[in-house]
Design a protein around this nucleic acid. Structure first.
Lengths: 206, 206
DNA sequence: ATATGTGAAATCTTTCACAGCG
DNA sequence: CGCTGTGAAAGATTTCACATAT
């Protein structure tokens, strides 16, 4: 079911399908079609069907898809049918905003640890959490078996923090620093950098 | 030079090349190669050469690329050889963090307007700016000829704010709300949603 | 000697179009 | 009758490999 030969580009679309389906669910929709879902997420109906068919047969011919069933299936496929603990490294402005973001809980995540190396930040409380010294990062993450971390440190510090995360057993890094990280094959990195996205759009302006 | 038939996927890689080259420049590198640049951004050397060749011949055979010349060329191609004024809509936690992000200035952008519809936020100062009432959004953006906006409002408000942005003449939207926006063809949207990226990575965990 | 720029080949991704099932 | 699931076709992207320039 979770074959490693399903293209990355397909996997990348699944969370958007899930997001749209969860919205539908909130609006009380019982049923949808590849046509309707495609219009919402901006993808062809054929592509939705092909993508989903990689994992099973979730629809009913002539009828469409049950929204709640498909939500459930996608949650399983994406492994967000559980709660993943997240570590956050970097308790600056952006780190604070992320730690206070209320969306994690509803979608399979909970921020459980926050680190910073600045004495001015260490010991500060952010919601229910206390900012810990980055010096403790490796032993604490290893002990708590944390697999996912978010990185909101300055670019110059990002690679060395990433190296520590990997040493501590982290397998997924959401990197907000504006630098490409070098990591071994078994570690996945996703990048969130507003500059990159903005520059991609200025290209199309006059 | 800026032909509309250069694939989107190529355009999407250019900002990462530029980012890496600017880093090299700061470290004092004079020259680089498709090989070296490719290793840094995680792309094959052939792909770097093919991508760049869409826009001209920037290298010297046997020698490689001049870092500063290539930076200059990419800035022109991406149209960040100037400063674009940005509007920010949504002055909550995330809006504040973004408004205070120091990276815009060095990369072709400046946040010049901040809006919110919450009376508790309107009138507040964020750095040199004052949060304005969203009710003024359309006339102000139109008058200042703003082409790019960042959206950090709750998901339920995002589509209606986007509609106003488009009415005001905005052509590029960086959307932080967790919803797919419906926009006309001449408007570009990029999405920044941590949940989407995290779910894409949990897929590969056990 | 070395690294670019580029057609041609290989690979990957999307769309088409329809059989099949409720 | 309508909409899924899916082989086959079309289209897009990446890699190969080498002629070419310094």
């Amino acid at each position: 079911m979770t074959d490693r030969d399903i293209p990355d580009i397909v996997v990348g679309r699944l969370p958007r399908y899930l997001q749209a389906l969860e919205h539908m669910q909130l609006s009380g929709a019982q049923t949808t079609s590849s046509q309707e879902l495609g219009e919402i997420v901006g993808v062809s109906a054929a592509q939705i069907r092909k993508d989903l068919s990689q994992y099973g047969e979730f629809g009913k011919q002539g009828k469409g898809y049950s929204v709640s069933y498909l939500v459930h299936q996608l949650q399983q496929i994406l492994k967000v049918d559980r709660v993943w603990p997240l570590a956050l490294v970097g308790a600056g402005n952006l780190g604070h905003a992320i730690a206070n973001y209320p969306g994690f809980g509803q979608h399979g995540f909970r921020v459980t640890l926050i680190f910073d190396n600045d004495p001015a930040h260490i010991g500060a409380r952010i919601g229910p959490l206390t900012v810990q010294d980055s010096a403790q990062l490796v032993p604490v993450l290893r002990e708590k078996k944390i697999k996912i971390a978010m990185l909101t440190v300055p670019a110059r510090a990002a690679q060395s923090v990433a190296d520590q995360l990997i040493e501590a057993g982290v397998r997924s890094i959401l990197n907000y620093a504006s630098i490409t990280l070098s990591v071994p094959d078994h570690v996945h990195v996703q990048y969130i950098d507003p500059i990159i996205y903005l520059q991609r759009m200025t290209y199309y302006l006059d």
